[in-house]
């Protein structure tokens, strides 16, 4: 059963049609890579899934529950959106860690704030906060940064910052974790450590949507490739299908250009 279903998403910025009817679905545990040239709408699609942009048209369903419907204003209310967006996690291109908090606090902050809304928070405060803390430490270990728990973002390299950002997104236990070009802001020698973490997540069957320019990585890690151009999905399939036997002319052109450079 599909964990995520996206129906006919459209998004315009003024007269510019960025997304022109995007539909796809994603199985639980599947990792999908979205490829395509700059301006093809990949990032906007991710931002729509994370409620950072409001689609002009279309419907998004998670676990058969409608979490966004352009025709139903009820799904767009601020309080509703806040709860529903936690189905998704997002890792940004430029990390966006909170500079005034340590690596560990970056990971635990949102969970702590959310815990305050639990009815038993006052009573079980200590236990709850301790659990969050331990989970944060566990996640730091998972991304290989246990020794950096008390470091501030500016004391970390770009790769380390992005790994903290991945742990921070995981802390909210999203159903679907999205990556927006996670290695594009990194020096080439730092991309490896971040890709390794994402690869580990794929091995653990984390459901992921990864927008990337790292073709070799996409081919290697993703279960499915989605090629976008000018706001539409041109082609999708397994890495083998898309990379080795692309059906569409546009896909072929894109991949050739990529192989040349």
């Amino acid at each position: 059963m599909a964990i995520l279903e996206v129906h006919n998403i459209e998004k315009n910025f003024g007269t510019l049609q960025v997304l022109q009817g995007i539909s796809f679905s994603l199985e639980k545990g599947e990792s999908m890579a979205i490829i395509g040239s700059s301006g093809s709408g990949k990032t906007t699609l991710l931002r729509c899934l994370n409620f950072l942009e409001r689609p002009d048209n279309g419907k998004i369903m998670v676990n058969n529950e409608v979490i966004f419907d352009a025709l139903d204003p009820c799904t767009q209310r601020e309080s509703e959106v806040r709860k529903k967006r936690l189905h998704f996690g997002l890792v940004f291109q430029n990390f966006n860690l909170f500079p005034q908090y340590t690596a560990l606090k970056n990971i635990t902050l949102a969970a702590e704030l959310l815990a305050k809304e639990r009815p038993n928070f006052q009573k079980d405060k200590r236990i709850i906060l301790k659990e969050i803390q331990e989970k944060g430490e566990m996640l730091l270990a998972q991304v290989g940064l246990s020794d950096k728990r008390d470091y501030y973002p500016h004391q970390l390299s770009g790769g380390q910052q992005q790994r903290v950002a991945i742990a921070r997104a995981l802390a909210m236990e999203p159903d679907i974790l999205c990556f927006d070009e996670p290695t594009s802001a990194l020096d080439p020698e730092l991309t490896g450590e971040v890709l390794k973490v994402i690869r580990n997540l794929a091995d653990r069957n984390t459901t992921m949507v990864i927008v990337t320019h790292e073709m070799a990585f996409a081919r290697d890690v993703a279960d499915r490739i989605l090629f976008m151009d000018e706001g539409v999905i041109v082609e999708q399939g397994t890495p083998q299908e898309v990379f080795e036997n692309p059906k569409e002319e546009r896909t072929r052109q894109f991949l050739t250009r990529y192989n040349e450079s």
């Binding site: 994370n50 409620f51 709860k83 998704f88 940004f92 966006n96 949102a110 704030l113 959310l114």
Partner: peptide
């Protein structure tokens, strides 16, 4: 990006501003 990072983590506008 600081606001957006707070938003995708489910923080309220007030929490984002003060925290």
């Amino acid at each position: 990006g600081q606001y957006e990072a707070g938003q995708v983590l489910g923080m309220t506008k007030t929490q984002i501003f003060f925290k």
